[in-house]
Amino acid sequence: MRRRTLILSSVGLLSALGFMLAVGAWRSGDLPWQQEAALVSGIRAADLGSMSWQLTSHDNERVSPQDWVGEASLVFFGFTWCPDVCPMTLLNISEWLDKLGPEADRLAVHLVTVDPERDSPEVLADYLSNFDPRITGLTGTPDEVARAVEAFDVTVRRVPRKDGDYTMDHTAGVFLFRPDGRLSSIIDLHEDPQFAVPKIRQALEREG
């Protein structure tokens, strides 16, 4: 009898503690879905239709955000001098496209360089020929790229190296836009394909 009371009160105590922790997490916004929502709504221009920038594709075609409205699109930032993160992101995206199968044909995939000084259309074309052919590279003058960087509200920092060369720090997330041009979600660099692929499907399916 005493033992049962002890167990019951322990259970009660634990549930109360759990409840308090849950309320605390909710109020502090630490829960994963709250962070996700804050991340998406925190982006100033989360709508391609209202952005204004122009870039040049690796096939030397001029591109503006309005061209992307009408089909779902995936956009990420990087540069071809980046030895670790960028090949990894390109390979992740290739893997997601493979997993999507024929659905991937309805998705436009773009890499915007954060390093227009070195990444000309020709350099992008040469580099991207080593990866999935569905990935289009975009570049422009430094001012044009700066406008796009600002529109997507991504962080880009030029970091000088000791030998006079430089590298770039940049936002590594992958943006997903729905066919109506609105931001659907962001895929983190280290996100498992089992979560990334459903996010892409969601962007493909949701209309208006």
Binding site: L39, V85, T155, V159, T167, D169, A172, H190
Partner: peptide, 9 residues
């Protein structure tokens, strides 16, 4: 290293 979604090296 990832800091606030920004990759640096």
């Amino acid at each position: 290293v990832m800091t606030d979604g920004v990759a640096s090296m």
